[in-house]
Nucleic acid binder design. Structure first.
Length: 572
DNA sequence: GCCGTTTTCGGCCCGACTGTTTTCAGTCG
């Protein structure tokens, strides 16, 4: 069973935590964390790369030493240095660091002075009044830790972007009523449109910050005020969401937007470029010899380091700073570039609205075409259509098309890919369709090799066109099934197939990195809402967010094409 | 431990807030 990138990353992070508690060189600790982050976000699996004979030390933040450690993990599943460290430092201390307010120094102190090795030990010690007696801790610290312990569940998750939007919207409205407020924007990963967000970073400009901060902490939904200062305040909302509000003067708005939008990796790279030119870049502006030379707008900051403006979605230090230097930044796709939707359901299978209702709703969005993709016969749980039902369904589409003026319904099906890689309908049925959207809905637990081969075999069928939700993951609910994405993309390129970016906010599958990988390999994408109701059609915008993070442009997305050109693509 | 258009050695982001101090360490983002 090959080890996953996320397991490698988890081990490296745990090692970093324990070494930090032991007081190891902080830059070495940081190096392990940076490497963990590289591995976690990398679209190809370390295991596959080693199989292909590639040198891992080419990856950013991974040198000879870590390349070797990763190779050992891939081959044996173990990291010897981690085991060594765990022999002398209790492994659970790593978890104690997850409690807010506890960093390496304090965890070490708790261990050395009170022999606290676990969350349980810590709880007992606080109850017994021992913690507040250690120097450096006091009653307030003990109280805070106690509160955090009560709320800590161990499986804290980031919030899906669409859920974060629901939390953010009323708060933003409320904050706008604060006295003397200038600009207001939600920065952070929310502005970068990342699929999940950890907290909300709200940036505000105002001459006087006090009224803004006082207004903020009086928000109805605030459960706890963590800190409150002149430029920064932090609260927890009842939903558990952490919200940071930062107030800066008007002239620093651009620099602060960059700073608080991140990502961290983008900012560090950007500041390094500044340093090289003799500037200091921080949240207040760009400084040359303590004189502010830019910062009012984001453009002015990028200009100082000879870069064009970079869209927030691209700010992940994945090559955007180089692209902004040589003029090769992508012109990112927008919602209005979309001409149709290639994956939708109606009442005929597991959708909630009729053909006509879906067609009218899509027409209202200005689409030229809408593909109806009911489930195929094996998926009885979603009322999949048998061959006669599908046949009648196609007739209905023909009849409705004769009445529709501004939109055309495309005849399709979300065809199951069976365990052996066959498609769920015979060819004589498939050929009646304009194109197919093929997907895996069962047998998620096949080995990586078998799952990949299953998909490749399916692609051999000349009626295979689009691979829908290619990993099957549901954010925060279900892990992706195990496949070799690179091999799938290679096969898609060879055979003239396409990959779906499923725009359902809990799917968003492909990932952003996956989109970029597909683009770089020359495989085009269908961004489709997989709508099961008329209102689901608007989830297209979630797919656009993800696509922009994956550097996609109009030319990379097949449903930006007019209908006749699109249908040409499906002639394999 | 990583990295390099000043460097193969010597850097590695840095400002804000809190609590416990009595001038600052620890933590966080």
């Amino acid at each position: 069973m090959p080890i996953h990138n996320r397991e490698i990353a988890t081990k490296l992070n745990r090692l970093a935590n324990l070494l930090e508690i032991e007081g190891a060189n902080s830059f070495r600790v940081r190096a392990y964390r940076k490497a963990a982050s590289t591995v976690r976000g990398y679209p190809r699996s370390m295991s596959d790369m080693l199989d292909d004979g590639e040198n891992l030390s080419k990856l950013p933040n991974i040198g000879d030493d870590l390349a070797e450690k990763i190779q050992t993990m891939v081959m044996t599943g173990e990291l010897p240095l981690l085991q060594e460290v765990e022999d002398r430092t209790p492994p659970a201390l790593s978890e104690l660091m997850k409690i807010e307010g506890l960093g390496p120094k304090r965890v070490r102190k708790l261990y050395e002075e009170l022999d606290i090795q676990s969350l349980n030990d810590l709880e007992e010690a606080i109850k017994a009044g021992k913690v507040q007696k250690i120097s450096g801790f006091g009653n307030k610290s003990a109280e805070k830790i106690k509160l955090r312990l009560e709320k800590y569940s161990g499986n804290e998750q980031r919030t899906r972007l669409i859920d974060a939007e629901e939390i953010a919207a009323p708060l933003l409205d409320y904050l706008k009523d604060a006295k003397g407020i200038g600009n207001i924007i939600i920065a952070g990963s929310y502005r970068r449109r990342k699929e999940t967000v950890g907290d909300l970073d709200i940036l505000i400009t105002a001459k006087d910050s006090s009224p803004v901060m006082n207004h903020f902490i009086r928000y109805d939904d605030v459960e706890e005020v963590v800190s409150k200062g002149e430029t920064r305040s932090t609260v927890y909302l009842r939903s558990g969401m952490q919200v940071d509000v930062r107030v800066v003067p008007e002239e620093s708005y651009g620099a602060a937007k960059i700073y608080f939008t991140g990502s961290k990796a983008h900012n560090i790279a950007l500041r390094k470029l500044g340093t090289k030119k003799g500037y200091k870049i921080n949240e207040y502006g760009v400084f040359e010899d303590n004189e502010r030379i830019a910062g009012e707008t984001e453009e002015s900051v990028y200009e100082c380091i000879d870069r064009k403006y970079i869209e927030p979605e691209l700010r992940e230090n994945r090559g955007e700073l180089d692209a902004a230097a040589d003029g090769s930044l992508p012109r990112l796709i927008t919602l209005s570039d979309i001409r149709g939707n290639l994956h939708t359901h109606t009442k005929a299978s597991d959708g909630h609205h009729s053909l006509k209702e879906m067609a009218k709703a899509a027409e209202k969005l200005g689409y030229e075409y809408l593909a109806i993709t009911e489930h195929s016969r094996s998926l009885s749980i979603a009322s999949g259509l048998d061959r006669d039902q599908l046949s009648r369904h196609l007739d209905e589409i023909d009849e409705l098309n004769a009445q529709l003026e501004n939109i055309v319904l495309l005849k399709s099906s979300e065809v199951d890919i069976l365990e052996d890689g066959r498609l769920d309908y015979p060819d004589d049925i498939l050929k009646k369709l304009d194109f197919t959207v093929c997907a895996i809905h069962q047998k998620f637990d096949l080995s990586r090799k078998k799952q990949t081969e299953r998909i490749l075999r399916a692609m051999d069928n000349p009626y295979f066109h689009v691979l829908a939700h290619p990993s099957g993951r549901l954010i925060n609910e279900r892990d992706p099934y195990d496949t070799n994405l690179e091999k799938i993309l290679e096969a898609a390129k060879e055979r003239g197939c396409f990959i779906e970016l499923n725009a359902q906010p809990q799917r968003l599958d492909l990932t952003d990195e996956g989109c970029k990988m597909a683009k770089d390999m020359g495989v085009r994408i269908s961004i489709a809402s997989d709508a099961h109701s008329t209102s689901d059609l608007k989830h297209m915008r979630c797919g656009i967010d993800q696509a922009r993070r994956g550097w996609l442009e109009v030319k990379d997305v097949i449903n930006c094409l007019p209908r006749n050109q699109l249908l040409e693509l499906f002639k394999r």
